[in-house]
Nucleic acid binder design. Structure first.
Length: 491
RNA sequence: CGGGGUGUAGCGCAGUUGGUAGCGCGCUACGUUCGGGACGUAGAGGCCGCAAGUUCGAGUCUUGUCACCCCGACCA
C-alpha cells in the first residue's frame, strides 16, 4: 500500500497540506494568498452551507446580499472597527485600464482615479448598517434578522489553505433589535446554533465561551466563540457571535421610535463561520491514510466498488448492486457506484480512502456466490463480510455509528488534552511537552494576558460559559483570580 | 519587512571539474492483467524563471531581476 502522506507525528503541518492536496480539496492559486477550492472541497462546503442555512431559517433568519465594495469613509465610522481591520484591507483606487503608452500591455489610467477609494469588504458590518438605517424607523420594523453568504478579503501576511486565506467564503449574520436583552439573546442563540452544527454535523466537540477584551471582535461589546481542539493540541476558533451593543447604530445613526414614541438606537449582533471549518474538519478527524469525513458532511457517503475483469462479471454484479443502490437512495444515502474499467479496484480502494468516503462496499464474483459483500468503514479501517440481505439497513446504521464514533473519539481526545496548571513552569511544560488546552488562573488584566502571550505564544481562547468559580492565583503575576480560563496555542 | 530555501517536461526531482537534456509518476497506443495504488513493449512531451556578463562553449560560473515556498513579525 503506497501512501504518500506525511505522518502526523513527523510533521503536522506537512500532513495537513498533504491531505488537502491528495484528497483533492484545494490548492494555492496564481494569486498570492488566495485558494482554489476544488470540486471535492467545494462539495463538502456545500453540505455545510445547506445544513447551516436550514438552521438559520429554522431560527427565523432570511438571506440577503450586500455590496462587495465599502466606501472608505464607512469603514472608519466606528473607531475600534477600523483599527481592527485597517492593516489588512484591499483597496480599489481606479476604475479603468488603458493601453500602455510606453509599449506592451495595459496600465492603470491615472485619469480614472476614484474620488473615494473602495475597500473590498473584510466584513460587512459597515455597509449593512448604512443600509439598515433606511430599513428601520419603528419598533415594528424590528427585529431585522438577515444573513448573507459571501466572500470577504483580508490581506493576511501569511496564509494557509482553508485556515487563513486572503479571500474566503463565509456567512455573516447581521441582526438589529429593540432591546439589549434581545440582542444578547440572539448572539447567544446563534452561538448555540454553531455549537450544534459543529457537534452534530462535523462531529467536532467545542467549548462555548466568551472572549477576553483583547481577543474581542473590533467594534463588539462581547464576543462569544466556539473553540475546537485539533489533533496537534492547538486550538481553532470554529465560529464567533458578537453582541455589538449600540456601537454600529450610533456610528451609522440607526434609530427607531419605541412604543412610548421615543427615539432609541437599535441593538446589534453579528455572527459568522467560514471555509475555515473545512480546515477544522480535516485536522480533527483525518489520519495518516488521508481525509476522514463525518457521514453527515460527506458528498459521497457510500462508494460501491465492483471487482470484475470483464463485462459479463460486471453485469452479474450490477444485477445485485442496482437494487441495493435504489434502496440506499430511497433512504437519502448518497451512493456512488464506480464501474470505471480504466481503474483497478485496488486503485479505487486507495482513492476513496484518501478522499474520506465513510463507507466502502466491494463486491466481486466470490461475493456473488455467497450472497455477501465486503464492507469497510473509513473511521476505524475495519473490514467485514456482510450478507447482501438487508445490507441497506446495515449500512444506514453503520453511517450513524461512524458519525457518533468520530464525535466520541474527538471528544475523548480533547478531554484527555485539557490539563490544569497552577504554576508558570507547569503551564509552559504542558504547552511545550504535552500540548492541548490549559486551564489556569489569570488576574483578569489585558496587560498580563499580553505578557503571557508574548512569553508562551498561548492566548486565552475563552472563558467558558458556566465556568465554575474557583478562586486561585494568576500563573504569571500571582495576583488573585476568580476562575480558571482556557489557554492554548491557536491557529 | 527580517532569516532561510527553491525555480529544469503536466507533477515530483537528478544533473559531477562548464562540453549541447535525464529519472520517477502521469499521459498516448497495443498486449497481458484485474479481491489494496499491476506489468511489458513502443511513443509524445523542454527558450533549464527572466535579463545581462565571462567563455570557443553556460542548466552549471558572475551580477542583476522576478516568482514561489518555509520560519518569524501580523492574524477581527
Amino acid at each position: 500500500m503506497a501512501k504518500n502522506i506525511t505522518s502526523r507525528e513527523d510533521n503536522y503541518s506537512q500532513w495537513y497540506n498533504d491531505i488537502v492536496k491528495q484528497a483533492d480539496l484545494a490548492e494555492n492559486s496564481a494569486v498570492r494568498g488566495c485558494m482554489v477550492i476544488k470540486p471535492h472541497g467545494y462539495a463538502i462546503w456545500e453540505k455545510m452551507h445547506d445544513a447551516l442555512d436550514k438552521m438559520f431559517k429554522d431560527t427565523g433568519h432570511v438571506n440577503a446580499y450586500f455590496p462587495l465594495f465599502i466606501p472608505k469613509s464607512f469603514l472608519s465610522r466606528e473607531a475600534a472597527h477600523v483599527d481592527g481591520f485597517a492593516k489588512e484591507c484591499a483597496v480599489v483606487t481606479h476604475y479603468r485600464l488603458i493601453n500602455n503608452p510606453q509599449g506592451k500591455g495595459v496600465v492603470v489610467d491615472p485619469e480614472a482615479k476614484l474620488e473615494e477609494e473602495l475597500i473590498v469588504r473584510p466584513t460587512s458590518e459597515t455597509i449593512i448598517w448604512d443600509t439598515y438605517k433606511n430599513w428601520i424607523q419603528s419598533y415594528r420594523d424590528l427585529p431585522v434578522l438577515c444573513n448573507q453568504w459571501a466572500n470577504v478579503v483580508r490581506w493576511e501576511m501569511r496564509t494557509r489553505l482553508f485556515l487563513r486565506t486572503a479571500e474566503f467564503l463565509w456567512q455573516e449574520g447581521h441582526t438589529a433589535h429593540a432591546t439589549r436583552e434581545e440582542a444578547v439573546a440572539e448572539a447567544e442563540r446563534m452561538l448555540e446554533v454553531y455549537a450544534d452544527f459543529a457537534e452534530n454535523y462535523m462531529a467536532l466537540p467545542v467549548i462555548k465561551g466568551i472572549k477576553t477584551p483583547n481577543e474581542r471582535f473590533a467594534g463588539a461589546e462581547d464576543t462569544f466563540c466556539i473553540e475546537a481542539m485539533m489533533q496537534d493540541g492547538k486550538a481553532l476558533q470554529a465560529g464567533t457571535s458578537h453582541f455589538l451593543g449600540q456601537n454600529f447604530a450610533k456610528a451609522f445613526d440607526v434609530k427607531f421610535l419605541n412604543k412610548e414614541n421615543q427615539l432609541e438606537y437599535v441593538w446589534a449582533t453579528s455572527w459568522g463561520v467560514s471555509t475555515r471549518l473545512l480546515g477544522a474538519l480535516i485536522m480533527a478527524h483525518s489520519d495518516d491514510n488521508g481525509l476522514v469525513l463525518p457521514p453527515k458532511l460527506a458528498p459521497i457517503q457510500v462508494v460501491i466498488i465492483p471487482v470484475f475483469k470483464d463485462e459479463i462479471q460486471l453485469k452479474a454484479i450490477s444485477e445485485q448492486v442496482l437494487p441495493l443502490i435504489q434502496k440506499l437512495r430511497d433512504n437519502h444515502i448518497l451512493v456512488k457506484y464506480d464501474t470505471d474499467d480504466s481503474k483497478r479496484s485496488g486503485w479505487k480502494f486507495n482513492e476513496y480512502e484518501v478522499k474520506g468516503v465513510p463507507v466502502r462496499v466491494a463486491i466481486g464474483p466470490r461475493d456473488l456466490e455467497n450472497k455477501q459483500a465486503e464492507v469497510a468503514r473509513r473511521d476505524t479501517l475495519e473490514k467485514s463480510i456482510l450478507p447482501l440481505e438487508n445490507l441497506d439497513q446495515t449500512i444506514a446504521q453503520l453511517l450513524d455509528n461512524i458519525q457518533q464514533n468520530l464525535y466520541r473519539k474527538a471528544l475523548a481526545f480533547r478531554d484527555s488534552h485539557i490539563r490544569e496548571a497552577n504554576t508558570w513552569d507547569e503551564f509552559i511544560d504542558i504547552l511545550d511537552h504535552q500540548s492541548g488546552f490549559v486551564q489556569a488562573h489569570w488576574d483578569g488584566t489585558p496587560e498580563t494576558e499580553d505578557m503571557i502571550k508574548e512569553k508562551s505564544k498561548a492566548t486565552i481562547r475563552c472563558i467558558p460559559f458556566q465556568n465554575p468559580l474557583t478562586p486561585g492565583k494568576c500563573i504569571l503575576t500571582g495576583k488573585p483570580s476568580k476562575q480558571r480560563v482556557i489557554f492554548a496555542r491557536a491557529y
